[in-house]
Write a protein that binds this DNA or RNA. Structure first.
Length: 272
DNA sequence: TGCCAGGCTTCAC
DNA sequence: GTGAAGCATGGC
């Protein structure tokens, strides 16, 4: 499949800290494992995207996953003209997308994420997948799906801890058990309003305000959610005197947050 | 080698 | 309600 798309950059997305199963194959090609599928994706030029999938999978899976139907130029243009920092951030990260990822995968992944850097998170997630995930066809890809709630819930805390989860191991097991048992119904949660969903996620041990907002933004596509991590707080302190004008970006502040996060971690920002 | 990482829980006050 | 200690482990 060849797609023409503006404001889409696979490298930006892969390094944006919202997904942990994008593997760089070459400068312009990535392997993505998501939705129990493997996808090879390349970008020969700025506005062209090549996906090795059929038309059905594209329409059913990858078009929504990459949020191809949303016009991100609207978000880019919305940055306040007098906010030089944000202008730089959206220009630097204008290929950003908010991926429509699996809710359970995001819940577990962001429970793991606390007090870990991104390479360490990737390592933990990959270990969970190879240990407890189902192999994905074709076998020569040697790819594993993210574990089901049942598969994770069946593991002992010690087994999980052996995946370098540290003190998060019991959090992961409890969260998986809650979902596997139906006590936490992620399908029903899709229909909840933002505040109800936020409160529901906070009932999971190991989930606090930051993780809940990440799960909402990346696992439920609630783009009004605004996760505040150490990087975002650092930027708000350094560039906004401690207060970010959230109300200006009401309804999609999570997208703006993502541009800021990506820019904050870049060499372009630190070298400016 | 020491500091830091997409924080949360617990426990004072 | 606010503030601070403690937490397991790996990357840089």
């Amino acid at each position: 499949m060849h797609i023409t798309q503006n404001n889409f950059d696979i490298k930006t997305i892969a390094n944006s800290g919202q997904c942990f199963r994008f593997h760089k194959i070459s400068e312009q090609e990535y392997r993505v494992i998501a939705k129990n599928k493997v996808l090879h994706l390349s970008q020969p030029d700025e506005n062209t995207c090549v996906l090795d999938c059929n038309a059905h999978d594209f329409a059913a899976i990858w078009q929504p996953y990459f949020d191809f139907d949303t016009d991100y130029s609207v978000f880019v243009r919305s940055a306040a003209p007098d906010d030089i920092f944000l202008q730089n951030a959206v220009q630097y990260g204008k290929g950003m997308r908010i991926l429509r990822q699996d809710a359970f995968e995001m819940l577990i992944t962001f429970i793991i994420s606390q007090r870990k850097n991104i390479p360490a998170i990737k390592q933990c997630v990959e270990t969970l997948c190879t240990q407890f995930g189902r192999p994905i066809e074709p076998a020569e890809e040697r790819a594993f799906a993210f574990p089901t709630p049942q598969a994770l819930a069946a593991q002992s805390v010690d087994t999980l801890r052996a995946c370098a989860l540290g003190y998060r191991a019991p959090y992961v097991q409890t969260a998986a058990k809650m979902v596997a048992s139906g006590a936490l119904d992620l399908n029903a949660a899709q229909k909840m309003d933002d505040e109800s969903l936020y409160q529901l996620l906070l009932t999971v041990p190991g989930v606090g305000p930051k993780v809940a907002n990440c799960v909402m933004l990346f696992g439920f596509y609630r783009i009004a959610s605004f996760p505040r991590d150490v990087w975002i707080n650092r930027m708000i302190d350094a560039e906004y005197g401690g207060v970010f004008p959230l109300e200006r970006y009401s309804g999609y502040a999570g997208v703006i947050q993502q541009y800021i996060f990506y820019y904050a971690r870049s060499n372009e920002y630190s070298a400016r």
